[in-house]
Design a protein around this nucleic acid. Structure first.
Lengths: 340, 340
DNA sequence: GTTAGCACTCAGACCATTTGAGTGCTAATA
DNA sequence: TATTAGCACTCAAATGGTCTGAGTGCTAAC
């Protein structure tokens, strides 16, 4: 059987109608809804064909039809190659000048959630390897040193180190110089035993302190799970099909935990560019089997990127979501470009 | 009428039973549950009295009784002055040495949520006024300066500032010296126009930069909303009485927003010490009218403290919750003491 | 190829009935 | 006088039957 023009129109009508109402849609509805001027009986025949081809399903005999994952997929694919969206204006109100990365991201997540009425999640950019760009120790008071570590991409980490004796200005300068000489441009793997040994040798009696500092660096680089922010997770209550306590609970847990979702977003073959759509069972994540997840990538610099995700019901308004995401992506790209 | 020994016992039995089951409890149950050896009829008489006194209510005629807010209140008050809890061992697994404040707090929130099966929230310590302890500018690369600001209580803030020209080492030293001389020990209110003017005068041509820096400081200090972490928010699905979508939704929104809850925790008359219990309508917060909220305070140093909160159903296991909180409070106090 | 008509299906609403847990009251008992 | 047994009563929730309406598939007519 062939998926001709008319079948397409009907399928599209079914999907759009279902997106609006959330109820299975019947033949009579479609016969009125479209401008094809076909009777419900004809529609029934076509629908029966569409069902056979797997694009729609009946939740039970004598109910209307709802789109299957395959049907959504077709619809989404059609959308994707379709005309460029007209952009509805969404702006991050940021005085970007002194705004920090995490604030920007939090706001972005919120903007998306509010605009789409779905749950959103955004991850901080993931650097392929965290190279040390710059290191600095400063005496804060008699008993503590502040270690500031700047990684490539201007991620700033800091940590207090407790010391017993006050260090002279001179010693600090020396230590700083040494640390930078040895460690600049390295990532965690490259700080191996031999580097560490050399540093200790040259430290002139401060080898204990050096160890402490290396410890701090190690935890800073290592524990770097990708940070993620969510927003609008309670939006899922707006969709009856997700709004039973078992489903809502697993979904919200996933959103709270973030970790799984992060993994999903950084999926293999994510192509680093463009927009990815997981419909229902297509998702490798158990918790989102009843949802659709749309992810997008924003870029900070070559090879450094983060992800935005939207989680909503299968009957998500894909058109709007994809539009909003594209929009926000370029917005973010802008901000980070200006930021340079 | 008087609340004699026997009535107390019965009330306690009703509450405890209701905590376990979540169902209204009837006279027959109590007559078997307690070791008073009274018939259900007698219990009925007593219950009728208790109802008249306002400690229990009937959800509808011919249902069992459930505790009223007043009843819970009595019960909680009894608990509070009761014997010291035996501590069940909960430990934060932390290698506290290099662990940062926010990590400790996140873990604490999690530990509580897991231990109690309620939702938990913890706020970072709130300083009455944020005084600047130490400031430092560092050149990171040709176009950016890193400004590190350490506030009293060792809260570290940092921000990148974009500059057009590279500064000499000497200029930086001078600027740093000046910044510290002028700003050390001040809080935001105290950085007024006259201080700013003086600084600009002495800056020797870097007044634009100084303005930028002051901007950064201002946002760092000002935007200091209390940070808060939540955990286990999905636990609320475990309690049928909260598990309808309207209630769950408002509650979860409150947990996601955090702001309202933070306000609740830093309530007027919070006495800075000890444990506070809000039962149902006692809470000034609309979103938690159907819940109970228990808050506790942990201390970092004189006058600097944060809050832990537990949110659960009215029929919360107050005994356990209060125990756990006391426990964790001392644990946290320990960690922060060691940390000094 | 399209349409009208008809029999059939099934979820959900509606209603009556039953069940069981719980109550209040009264009279008997210790 | 305090306690208890007994009984009539209430009401939520469960059960089960019936009806309704939206929807289908199939067939015959256009």
């Amino acid at each position: 059987m062939e998926l001709d023009e008319r079948k397409m129109t009907i399928l599209r009508a079914i999907i759009q109608n279902y997106l609006e109402t959330g109820e299975p849609v019947g033949s009579r509805t479609i016969s009125k809804y479209t401008d094809l001027n076909l009777s419900s009986a004809t529609i029934r025949n076509e629908m029966s064909d569409l069902e056979e081809m797997g694009y729609i399903v009946q939740p039970h005999t004598s109910a209307g039809r709802i789109p299957s994952d395959k049907g959504y997929r077709l619809y989404v694919d059609m959308l994707m190659q379709d005309k460029q969206m007209e952009m509805d204006n969404l702006k991050l109100e940021l005085n970007a000048k002194s705004e920090k990365l995490d604030n920007i991201l939090k706001k972005a997540a919120k903007v998306i959630a509010v605009n789409t009425n779905y749950a959103s999640m955004i991850t901080a950019p993931r650097y392929r390897k965290h190279r040390i760009k710059f290191l600095q120790l400063t005496q804060v008071d008699t008993e503590s040193l502040l270690a500031v570590i700047i990684l490539e991409g201007n991620i700033v980490k800091n940590n207090l180190i407790h010391v017993n004796e006050e260090l002279t200005q001179e010693t600090l300068l020396k230590l700083n110089l040494m640390l930078n000489t040895f460690l600049q441009g390295l990532d965690l793997q490259e700080i191996n035993a031999s580097v560490m040994q050399k540093m200790r040798n040259e430290s002139g009696g401060y080898s204990a302190l050096i160890s402490d500092i290396l410890d701090v660096i190690a935890t800073s680089l290592e524990s770097e799970e990708v940070e993620a922010y969510t927003s609008g997770s309670t939006n899922i209550f707006k969709y009856p099909e997700l709004n039973d306590s078992a489903k809502a609970s697993t979904l919200l847990s996933a959103l709270e935990e973030k970790k799984q979702l992060t993994e999903l977003m950084y999926q293999e073959g994510d192509s680093e560019r463009g927009i990815q759509v997981y419909i229902g069972d297509e998702s490798p994540l158990e918790a989102t089997k009843d949802c659709s997840v749309v992810t997008a990538t924003y870029h900070i610099e070559e090879g450094v990127y983060g992800k935005i995700g939207i989680i909503g019901p299968r009957r998500m308004d894909y058109e709007k979501v994809v539009g909003t995401l594209k929009n926000l992506m370029s917005e973010l790209d802008q901000i980070f470009k200006k930021d340079k």
